[in-house]
Amino acid sequence: MFGRDFKMTLSNATVAVRFQDVSRHFGNVRAVDAVDLDIARGEFFAMLGPSGSGKTTCLRLIAGFEQPTSGHIEIFGETAEGVPPYRRAVNTVFQDYALFPHMNVLDNVAYGLMVKGVDRNQRLAKSEEALKLVALAGYGSRKPGQLSGGQRQRVALARALVNEPKVLLLDEPLGALDLKLREQMQVELKSLQRKLGITFIFVTHDQGEALSMADRVAIFNEGRIVQVGRPEDVYERPQTRFVADFVGSSNVLSPDFTKACGLGANWSSLRPEKIRVLSAKEKAARDVVSFPAQVTSVHYQGAITRINTRVKGDQVLSVSAPAAGLALGDKLTLAWPRSAMHVMGGEA
């Protein structure tokens, strides 16, 4: 959908949200620091990063709850600075849902239409429709307090969508749900977004969530975007050690070790699932790197076992393998195709 070059600039007509050199400082803290970003119309875009990395502040800048200290934000081609939240064609699903406890579900959903002066019959009909969209038809007369977490989440979604926003912002939308429900909601959010064609921007610290739902992902660290790309780009070809480490659990190989594998003296990354444990009589094939290693810990995880090992020098390697009956201190040989190693540009 977005081609190989994930940094390509989009033409004005296809940009939903544009950040130009946007910074937001709180005192000495640079919550958002010189961010440049184009998000395309109709895109499902994820902002991924550890807490305090600036992703939520970026979302609040789009919603209008924060104003940039410097830089320029455009939403559908219009300047956003100075426009209050209630005049933006953007709606938010809050992390704690922020439903109004004194109103029933239908009135919650109809709230946006009510304050805009849409007449009663029309707004209630539209709200019923929105509830149907999130599979909550018939729940209109309940109070938010009588709903489960997953149902509240859907109400928050319907309440935002009924306003037909150009951009829907989701702040850690699945954070408060249990695992099963989270997986189910991931699928539903994704299909909802496809059906409606609205630009979804969601913030998460869960890399699995970002990778499975988003068309593109921006990785945040310390107020800056360190990489933007399709999920497979950031997973397979991390540009920095931070990305390699944060997205999935990659092995980060030192320049010395990378060189010993026959590549340039640079940092590189290697996914644990690319490494194989060689049996004693097996010989390494061409273009396959192999090293003797010693097991330092074993973590059984069901379908796979995570084996932490120490290789040449101080290099530590994690291996994902089917349960292999290995024990602490066992010596073994690890092998992986050289092409599985991704050399990262520069130090970061």
Binding site: G64, P84, P85, F94, L99, G112
Partner: peptide
């Protein structure tokens, strides 16, 4: 606090 923000977000002054 997010309830107030939610209200603003939904178009209420």
């Amino acid at each position: 606090g997010s309830m107030i923000e939610a209200s603003m977000d939904l178009g209420a002054d």
